[in-house]
Design a protein around this nucleic acid. Structure first.
Length: 197
DNA sequence: AGGGTGATTAGG
DNA sequence: CTAATCACCCTC
């Protein structure tokens, strides 16, 4: 019945592109995912779980299909879908999407935003959906945040490239997006490491 | 192009 | 305890 388990079956690298077109919903607001990034847990220097379990990342070590939310840069919340079996802290970061329902409510969460900017960027996506730290660990099959299977996209519609904003492992092309979609966030390389120039 | 903001983490 | 870092957004 729930195609959700099939959707989330496999490594984060397999699941990430498959999540494009899926819908994440909270209350009145529904967002169709257009951009995601894969994180490979303890094998991935760019992952929050690279150095093993900590209080913050413990949700990623749990079962798949739950939401991992974290607070960053003093003001922003971002959200991941946990994938992989318990003990394997893999996840997919929800980077951007298009609001397909609840436009009015989303606009209240992000006053003044243009339609294609409402959920353009991981922190904006959470803001538009009203996702906060209180939703960390939420079961996406039970709510209040829900993940729903969406339309399938052919591989030819999906582009990939380097992940955004990482200083560690910036070369892995583990970011996936629907090619040409206006809600896809702009790529910015991370600031260079401090040191001799 | 630059600043804001504060939790989280590793290290002494 | 301290200091560096940070999967970002906004305004200039």
């Amino acid at each position: 019945m729930s195609g959700l388990r099939e959707l989330l079956d496999g490594s984060s690298l397999e699941v990430a592109p498959r999540l494009l077109g899926a819908v994440i919903r909270h209350g009145a607001v529904s967002v169709r995912l257009t951009e995601v990034e894969a994180y490979a847990g303890e094998q991935d220097p760019g992952s929050h779980a690279f150095n093993g379990p900590t209080p913050r990342n413990q949700v990623m070590f749990g079962p798949s299909g739950h939401l991992y939310c974290y607070f960053v840069y003093g003001m922003h919340v971002c959200a991941n879908v946990v994938v992989g079996p318990p003990g394997d802290p893999a996840a997919v970061l929800l980077r951007a999407g298009e609001v397909v329902d609840g436009h009015q409510a989303a606009l209240q969460n992000r006053p003044g935003a243009r339609h294609h900017d409402l959920a353009r960027g991981p922190a904006r996506l959470c803001r538009a959906l009203g996702i906060g730290l209180q939703h960390n660990g939420c079961d996406l099959q039970a709510g209040p945040i829900l993940l729903e299977v969406g339309e399938r996209h052919p591989d030819s519609a999906i582009a990939s490239g380097p992940r955004v904003g990482l200083r560690r492992a910036p070369d892995r092309p583990w970011r996936f997006w629907l090619d040409g979609h206006p809600s896809v966030s702009a790529y910015r390389p991370a600031a260079p490491l401090k040191g001799p120039s």
